[in-house]
């Protein structure tokens, strides 16, 4: 926990105050506050429609907020487009990864940012790719393979490594473990911790409470577009579910109750 102790002392890289976003009459986000400090993993959780994706899109520069301020490194900024966010140092790894399957790992890492555009520096790019992957202790067998031949976890690794290429201060991961198996999920979580240990701020969105509690320093719950509490990894599953669904009595608890009732009656029947 030393990393998070140190993190809470540092100045936030990113500070959102009173962010709101309306789509016509619908307010997708209302009065959201969010701080991200260097070397900290912040998890955004919430049910479908809670506004997580809208918030990520605002930070990625895809949407502009209807109200509120964004401070980045102490300066108020306007994220007018995806290019602007990248330029400032806010990198996003989208859920569908957006990799070109027909190109190899090196080409994907450097896509749009190739070294020496008129005479590609393949050796330089390959070297940089290896050192980047090595810093992340990533297990990619060969960087000259097309992406099509990599597993889901390896693709996620490439996508994360690519977001780090431009040396961002903050990296946002949208559902990084959604499509992964057990071992690959663990690898990606390790990767997130390594990124954090390099002093970056990490924002992760996930539906998987276990993953969130395994890696997050702070868990921010969104509900119906509003802040609904800040929790830590020590929070119980029950408390988190309560915060997400907004009631101690909800479909999750009812289901658990009915299952345990069934189990009890089955035991009683025996």
């Amino acid at each position: 926990m030393s990393a998070s102790m140190q993190a809470s002392a540092a100045e936030p890289i990113l500070r959102l105050r009173g962010i709101s976003k309306n789509f016509g009459a619908v307010s997708a986000l209302t009065d959201i506050d969010l701080d991200v400090r260097p070397g900290e993993v912040v998890a955004l959780v919430g049910d479908n429609g809670a506004g997580k994706s809208t918030l990520v899109k605002i930070l990625a520069g895809v949407f502009q907020p209807s109200a509120g301020t964004i401070e980045y490194l102490g300066q108020q900024v306007i994220l007018s487009g995806p290019g602007k966010a990248l330029e400032l140092g806010i990198a996003t790894v989208f859920q569908d990864l957006a990799l070109c399957e027909n190109l190899d790992v090196v080409a994907n890492l450097f896509l749009g940012h190739e070294l020496s555009p008129w005479q590609l520096d393949e050796v330089g790019m390959e070297l940089r790719a290896w050192s980047l992957l090595r810093e992340l202790a990533a297990r990619i067998p060969s960087v000259r393979q097309p992406i099509a031949s990599l597993s889901g976890g390896q693709r996620q690794t490439v996508a994360i490594a690519r977001s780090l290429l431009l040396q961002p201060k903050i990296i946002m991961l949208d559902e990084p473990t959604a499509a992964l198996g057990v071992a690959q999920t663990a690898e990606v979580l390790n990767l997130i911790e390594r990124v954090r240990d390099r002093g970056l701020g990490v924002i992760i969105i996930s539906h998987n409470m276990e993953d969130v509690r395994a890696v997050a320093d702070r868990i921010i719950v969104l509900r119906l577009g509003r802040n609904n509490g800040v929790f830590t990894a020590e929070t119980t599953h029950q408390e988190l579910v309560t915060a997400i669904t907004g009631a101690a009595e909800n479909s999750v608890t009812r289901r658990q109750k009915s299952r345990s009732d069934q189990a009890i009656s089955r035991e009683a029947g025996l």
């Binding site: 995806p82 290019g83 990248l86 989208f94 569908d96 990864l97 957006a98 990799l99 070109c100 399957e101 027909n102 190109l103 080409a107 896509l111 749009g112 940012h113 190739e114 555009p117 008129w118 005479q119 590609l120």
Partner: peptide, 22 residues
């Protein structure tokens, strides 16, 4: 051997990915 060519392959392979890569 040029960035243009790499972009051609990228757009042909996955247009959306190429767009997001800038």
């Amino acid at each position: 051997r040029t960035k243009w060519g790499r972009s051609m392959f990228a757009v042909g392979g996955n247009r959306e990915a190429a767009r997001r890569a800038g």
